[in-house]
């Protein structure tokens, strides 16, 4: 449930709000909905991972990944754009997961 909520909200506000607002979304969603810390982290991580990967792909696929293929060479990564997509999704996931975990832990603290 929280996974879906975070997914939809962060996807929607990704278009007009700064990227870190997703952290607030994950935090609040976990605070109100999540049941356990592990579940909170996982749903926050998975939601943002998916949102960032999908948004990136929406741009990158019609581009035949030529940009990602160039940019990946700026990073200490293997020369394949997929790695850049993974890193991007991972960064989003970490932010979402940590924010959701914090929301959940705060709820627990208040209980």
């Amino acid at each position: 449930m929280s996974f879906l909520i975070i997914l939809i909200l962060s996807f929607a506000c990704g278009f007009f709000l700064p990227w870190w607002v997703a952290a607030i979304v994950a935090f609040l969603a976990a605070f109100f909905i999540s049941k356990t810390s592990l579940q909170a982290f996982c749903s926050g991580f998975a939601a943002l991972f998916v949102v960032w990967a999908v948004l990136a792909l929406l741009k990158s696929l019609p581009n035949e990944n030529i940009l990602a293929g160039r940019v990946v060479q700026l990073f200490p990564l293997p020369n394949n754009w997929i790695w850049l997509l993974m890193v991007t999704a991972l960064v989003g996931g970490l932010v979402g997961g940590m924010a959701a975990l914090s929301g959940m832990l705060l709820k627990k603290a208040f209980k």
Binding site: G14, P18, W19, W52, A56, K59, L67, A68, T88, V91
Partner: peptide, 9 residues
């Protein structure tokens, strides 16, 4: 890196 405003755009 973020796909909404970062380089993917």
């Amino acid at each position: 890196l973020n796909p909404a405003t970062g380089f993917w755009q």
